[in-house]
């Protein structure tokens, strides 16, 4: 009987009022994670950095997505454009980050894959990559190109 009466009050309070962190500073800023080794201690800190893209940003005139409004026909050899949609390890950025429409996001992800297969972005690869396309396995080391008209998007 005694055990039945023991009620988990603390659990109820936690469920009713979940712990909220309160911050007085704007959390939402572009951050870079830096690891600094000082003696024996490793300090990992998020540093607010400017993206560096603001002065070179294209102006959009309408409400379409950035690529649709610019009217660009991006090819897989335009690595200076494609690399803007890629993380430093070669991963495609998600749509909530790129802000593209559904079609252009799909098309851009295919273009990224094409450029990577053609070995045009060897510096944007995972850390385990050999970087040099000539060192790839088997037939993948030979030069190849792609036809953008083969991209089929509904």
């Amino acid at each position: 009987m005694n055990t039945l009466l023991k009620f988990n009050w603390q659990g109820l309070i936690k469920a009713a009022f979940p712990l909220r962190t309160l911050s007085l500073f704007p959390k939402l800023q572009l951050k870079e994670i830096q690891e600094v080794q000082e003696g024996k201690s490793l300090i990992i800190k998020g540093v607010n950095v400017p993206s560096g893209r603001e002065p070179f940003l294209l102006e959009t005139e309408n409400e379409l997505c950035p690529i649709c409004s610019s009217g660009l026909e991006v090819k897989h050899t335009d690595v200076l454009i494609i690399s803007q949609f890629v993380r430093s390890d070669g991963c495609m950025l998600p749509r909530r980050v790129t802000g593209l429409c559904r079609r252009q996001q799909k098309r851009m992800s295919i273009l990224v894959a094409m450029a990577q297969k053609a070995g045009l972005m060897p510096n944007l690869t995972p850390a385990t990559s050999k970087k040099d396309p000539k060192k790839r396995f088997g037939w993948k080391r030979y030069n190849k190109y792609f036809d953008e008209s083969t991209i089929k998007i509904r």
Binding site: L30, I33, V49, G52, R53, E54, L58, I67, Q84
Partner: peptide, 25 residues
Amino acid sequence: RLDEYTEKEVKEFPKIIDLPKDYIL
């Protein structure tokens, strides 16, 4: 190839998108 461009050329090429404010580099 992308690594054949200079760092300045890559940085100053017109940018289509900017990274959102809550993005972690």
